[in-house]
């Protein structure tokens, strides 16, 4: 990834983070809230791999925690792992598959919700599992709706990768 790509990723995630905390958290449809930042991170990670996904997740989380005056590092921790994991999927089996963004968003929405729940629980804060489970279906639906335009925009901004960015090593098991 070159410097221009880095700036594009940073701007994309910055705008998504600001829109998420200022606007999208108020958009309640059928009990679900679309997570623009998570969907953008998934798109960036799929297109640019695990390292960009992890670093992007870390700084996007930091932005959210700073803007909301929340506990610093909390969102970063979960988004870093989410970005890395989706990045690895994009580098390996998810490569060039049309359903990859939608599958990734659906799975990551579930894992991200439970990841946040777990961190809050470990910190001894309120961890309403029932509310999370009830809101999960609508949240997945809302995230899937915004996936297509967000992924299209991210792909337009971050043109196709060079061959060297893909994984060059495969670990054989057994």
């Amino acid at each position: 990834m070159n410097g221009v790509d880095g700036v594009k990723v940073a701007v994309l995630l910055f705008v998504a983070a600001i829109l998420q905390v200022s606007i999208f958290t108020q958009v309640h449809v059928l009990g679900g809230v679309p997570d623009l930042l998570l969907v953008t991170l998934v798109a960036v990670s799929l297109l640019r791999g695990a390292i960009v996904g992890a670093v992007g997740g870390f700084f996007a989380g930091l932005l959210v925690d700073t803007a909301t005056l929340g506990t610093l590092g909390l969102t970063s921790l979960v988004l870093t792992i989410a970005g890395y994991w989706i990045g690895r999927y994009g580098e390996t089996t998810g490569r060039d598959r049309g359903h990859a963004p939608f599958t990734s968003v659906a799975v990551v929405t579930v894992l991200y919700s439970f990841g946040l729940l777990l961190v809050h629980f470990v910190l001894g804060e309120r961890a309403p599992a029932g509310a999370i489970v009830r809101g999960l279906g609508p949240a997945i639906l809302m995230n899937l709706i915004v996936t297509a335009p967000v992924y299209a925009l991210a792909r337009r901004l971050l043109r196709s990768r060079s061959r060297s960015d893909y994984a060059t090593e495969v670990q054989l098991l057994g």
């Binding site: 905390v21 803007a67 929340g70 809050h120 804060e125 961890a127 999370i132």
Partner: peptide, 13 residues
């Protein structure tokens, strides 16, 4: 400037 982001806390900025 920001709204509650989930069921964890009902806080605004």
């Amino acid at each position: 400037t920001s709204y509650p982001s989930g069921p964890f806390a009902q806080e605004v900025t």
